[in-house]
Computed example of a mutant assay.
Amino acid sequence: MRDLPSFTLAGYDKGRGLLTQALWFAVMNTVFMAWFCPARLRVSLLRAFGAKIGEGVLIRHKVRVLWPWKLTVGDHAWIGEGVWVLNLEPVTIGSHVCLSQEAMLCTGSHDHRAADFRYRNAPITVEDGAWVAVRATVLAGVTVGRCAVAGAGAVVHQDLPELTLQTQDGRRRPVEEPK
Rank of each mutant, 00 (worst) to 15 (best):
T92D: 14
L58I: 15
L99P: 07
D75Q: 04
T92C: 13
W131I: 00
V156D: 01
L86V: 08
A114S: 13
H76F: 12
E55P: 01
E55G: 02
P161M: 04
G74M: 05
Q168D: 08
H61K: 02
A114L: 07
E127C: 15
V144G: 07
Y119V: 07
V144T: 03
H157C: 12
C106K: 00
R135T: 00
Y119R: 13
R172I: 03
I79F: 06
H110I: 02
A51K: 10
A154D: 06
N121H: 15
T167L: 15
D159A: 08
R64H: 12
D128C: 04
Q166N: 05
G153L: 06
R113Y: 08
G129N: 09
P68S: 02
C106N: 14
G50H: 07
R118K: 14
G50D: 04
T143H: 11
K70C: 04
W67E: 04
C106H: 02
L165T: 05
L139Y: 01
L88F: 12
W67K: 03
P174Q: 04
T164I: 13
V73Q: 07
V134G: 04
A115V: 14
V155A: 06
R64N: 08
G145Y: 05
K62P: 00
T125D: 04
E102G: 02
A148F: 06
R173C: 09
T167K: 09
M104T: 12
S95T: 15
G170P: 15
R113D: 14
L71H: 06
V85Y: 06
D128R: 08
T143Q: 12
P123I: 04
G108Y: 03
H157A: 15
T92G: 10
E162S: 14
A103S: 15
G151W: 01
V175D: 03
A122S: 12
T72N: 02
V155Q: 03
V65A: 01
R113I: 00
V155D: 01
V138G: 00
R64T: 08
D159R: 10
G153F: 08
E162H: 11
W69E: 01
V63S: 01
H61L: 01
R173N: 02
S100W: 10
N87Q: 12
V65L: 02
N121E: 05
D169I: 12
I93T: 10
T167V: 14
I59E: 09
G153C: 09
E81T: 15
V132H: 00
L66N: 04
V63G: 04
D159P: 10
D75M: 05
H112K: 02
A114E: 08
A148K: 06
V97Y: 08
R120S: 13
V97F: 09
T167D: 11
H110G: 09
C147D: 13
V144M: 03
G108Q: 09
R113C: 08
V132T: 00
V65R: 00
E177V: 10
G141K: 01
V149F: 03
S109E: 07
L105I: 08
R60W: 12
G141M: 01
W69L: 00
L66M: 10
Q158Y: 01
V156E: 01
G54F: 15
I93F: 14
D128M: 04
V149A: 03
I93D: 13
G108L: 01
G108K: 02
W67L: 05
H76W: 11
